[in-house]
Every structure is written in C-alpha cells, then in structure tokens.
C-alpha cells in the first residue's frame, strides 16, 4: 500500500467512523440510560435522511436547515413515542420493550412508504462541499473532511453536556440507580423522556449527514442498526468515549479490511465485535457489571 493509498484509506475510515459515531452515540445514550434495546434506531436514521431530502430538495431549504429539521423531526417523533407509549413499559418485563420497538419499526416503515413512496432519492452535497481538496499527493473529498470535523464536535458537546452539567450528572446517575435517583426527588420520567428524545435526534442528524453520500431507499435502515449496536458494544456500554473509540475501530476495520480482504467484507464488523468481546467481554472502555 503506497503512502497515498494509506492516507486516503485512513481518511475514509475516519470519515466513516465519524458518521457512524453520530448515529451510534444516540443509541448508546438511550441504551445506557434507559436499558432499552431500540430496534427502531435504524428507522430513525432513515427518517432523518428522508426528512432532509424533503426539506432541501422539495422545499429548497439550505442544507443546514435540513439537518436541523431532521433533528427536530426525530425529536418530535421520539418524544411522542416515549410519552404516549414507551413510558408505560419501563417497569414491565425488560425484553418486552424489544417487542415494542419491533412494532415501531413495522409502523414507521409503512409510514415512510406512505409519505415518500418507494422511489429512490438522492440529496446533493451542500454548496462548497461537493469537491475535493488537493494535498499534492492525495485528493480528499471535502464532504468527508466536513464529517471528520462534525463528529468530534458532537462528541465534545455531548461530553460537556453529560460530564459538566447538572443535567448530565442526573443522567449518569440514572444509568446507575434509577430508584435511588427517584427517591432523591429527581423527576426520573422526564430525564428518560429527554434522553430518548436527544438520542433519537442524534439518529436523525446522523441520517441527514449521511444523506449526501448514499442513496436513499426503503430498507436503508436494516444494516445500520446492527452496526450501531456493534459500535456501542465494542466501545463499552453507556460510555461516550467508548462509542467514539468503537466507531473509530469500526471505521478503520471496515475500510482497511475491505481493501485488504474483500472476501470478508460482509462479516467484518461482526469479526471485529467477536474479537473484542472474546478478549474484553465488557468492551474496550466498559466495566464489568456486578450480579445483574
């Protein structure tokens, strides 16, 4: 592999990792706090992509407005789902939530078909980001560069929010002991609603940011959900920087693995997870949980 190729692959791996991190960080947040295995997260991602399509292409709004619309759209959908339905399930059998999110997937997939039909769509690159930057020995596409900037920004913003604010302390406490938190007078249901909304909005942003570089088709939700779970798990459950690290591992393994061993590309993420879990059963930055 020449230096040019290596640089390019490393760069692409990073860009992929950042796009995936944005989506997976939302799942990590929801999973870490609510302990809900949200099958519908991939569907939220798809809705994010479809919403930016409608806002930018059909209504002609600027790209940034589209991204915000996707975030807002998913926040509204998620809040409605949480307040009307999901909140009644927290005290029930844990796994029934999985059945619940499966029902949501079915309903949302049909809703997407009713709203957007079954055509395939494409979203253009935002102005000024559709070309490539020439570094002399290598060409780097601007949009992927943009993703490499946005990903860490979101990570830092989330870190500040969760690690440096009172609200963040409450959220972290909720991952540890929800009963105790409630006894201390914290309105736990509102914390849950906020976390679910925020995590889902991140899926919307991730979908919106992915939209310019992929085709928008029904079924685009299918593989993304597994990949997000893989990232969250290999990073360590509920750990923000773990997910960041997990996304980086995912991005580089998929990019370099596909170049070097194309025959294995279908199962690369699973091989990565297998390797991590056998060596570190609680993920890269996770900690063993006692007796749960």
């Amino acid at each position: 592999m020449t230096l040019t190729m290596f640089t390019l692959n490393a760069f692409y791996g990073l860009a992929l990792a950042m796009n995936m991190f944005i989506i997976a960080s939302g799942l990590n947040l929801i999973f870490g706090v609510l302990r809900v295995i949200n099958f519908a997260h991939g569907m939220f991602y798809m809705f994010g992509a479809y919403i930016i399509f409608t806002v930018t292409k059909t209504w002609g709004a600027p790209f940034l407005v589209g991204v915000l619309a996707s975030a807002a759209g998913l926040a509204v959908i998620a809040l409605a789902i949480e307040r009307l339905l999901l909140k009644n399930l927290y005290d029930k059998e844990h796994l029934m939530q999985l059945l619940f999110t499966f029902a949501i997937v079915l309903l949302m997939s049909d809703a997407a078909k009713m709203i957007w039909g079954t055509d395939q769509y494409s979203v253009g690159y935002p102005p000024g980001l559709g070309g490539a930057i020439n570094l002399g020995f290598v060409l780097l596409p601007q949009y992927q560069l943009f993703l490499c900037v946005v990903g860490p920004l979101i990570a830092i913003a989330m870190w500040l929010l969760v690690d440096r604010t009172r609200w963040g302390r409450i959220v972290r406490a909720a991952t540890q002991d929800r009963e105790m938190l409630s006894a201390l007078g914290v309105n736990v249901p509102m914390v849950y609603a906020a976390v679910f909304t925020m995590g889902s909005a991140l899926a919307g942003i991730g979908g919106a940011l992915a939209a310019p570089r992929v085709a928008l088709v029904p079924g685009m939700d299918a593989t993304i959900i597994n990949e997000c779970f893989i990232i969250v798990i290999i990073g360590g459950l509920g750990n923000l920087w773990g997910s960041f690290l997990g996304a980086l591992a995912f991005g580089f393994v998929v990019q370099f693995g596909t170049v070097l061993a194309p025959n294995w590309q279908d199962v690369l993420p699973y091989l990565l997870m297998l390797a991590v879990l056998i060596v570190r059963p609680w993920g890269l930055l996770g900690r063993p949980e006692a007796g749960r």
């Binding site: 997939s109 078909k113 055509d119 088709v217 029904p218 079924g219 685009m220």
Partner: peptide, 8 residues
Amino acid sequence: TGGGAVYG
C-alpha cells in the same frame, strides 16, 4: 415492502 419495493 422493504428494500425490494423500489422495483416490486
């Protein structure tokens, strides 16, 4: 339904 609906 799903991914094949584009053609189906």
